[in-house]
């Protein structure tokens, strides 16, 4: 049973966060020529594209890629059926400063797998993590975001964070709480 959905971020707030993310990247990556924003398939890609567009508007021509972590998951053959989405990294990640972008950080396992996937394209100088929503009390691995949009403290694993994109452009984030 699910309670009435609660809005976590409306599109105005979400767009402000996307702009903040772009500005933070410029601030922290002074030599952003060597920086790449990589969206995590499937749901981090739209967010990464929005951030990349914002960066381009601000004159920061950073590299952009998309990575799928399916082949690097730690639960193959343990139930579930995982079909990969395309990875699209048309540059070597060797010595690059990589920012992994995902919508919701939950257990941290996808991010762990994504780091391995990125390593197959070269050895980056550093890897940072940028997430729109951090469910900080649900982590199963020692992974922490470097850039966070909003943090939620829900301890119920059945609670669900829904990220809705309209026309691949405007985003809203909802929290669907389990009644138990």
């Amino acid at each position: 049973m699910i309670n009435e959905p609660k809005i976590l971020l409306n599109s105005t707030k979400a767009n402000l966060i996307i702009r903040r993310f772009a500005l933070q990247i410029i601030e922290n990556h002074k030599d952003y020529q060597n920086t790449a924003v990589i969206g995590l398939q499937p749901r981090g890609v739209l967010l990464a594209k929005s951030i990349h567009n914002e960066l381009l508007k601000l004159g920061a021509n950073v590299l952009y890629g998309e990575v799928d972590h399916t082949f690097f998951r730690d639960d193959i053959g343990r139930g579930g059926f995982h079909i990969p989405k395309p990875s699209n990294v048309n540059f070597s990640t060797e010595n690059k400063n990589i920012i992994i972008v995902d919508d919701v950080l939950f257990t941290g396992r996808s991010v762990r797998a994504a780091i391995d996937a990125i390593m197959s394209f070269g050895r980056p100088n550093c890897v940072e993590l940028m997430v729109l929503v951090d469910r900080r009390f649900q982590r199963e691995l020692p992974i922490k975001p470097d850039y966070t949009g909003v943090t939620i403290d829900s301890r119920n694993t059945n609670d669900f964070v829904k990220v809705e994109w309209e026309n691949n452009n405007d985003v809203q984030v909802w929290l669907l709480e389990d009644k138990k």
Binding site: V89, S120, F121
Partner: peptide, 15 residues
Amino acid sequence: NFLNLLQAPVKKTPA
């Protein structure tokens, strides 16, 4: 997707 992976510098996955 595996064909893409086989073009990458590291062609292995631990799947």
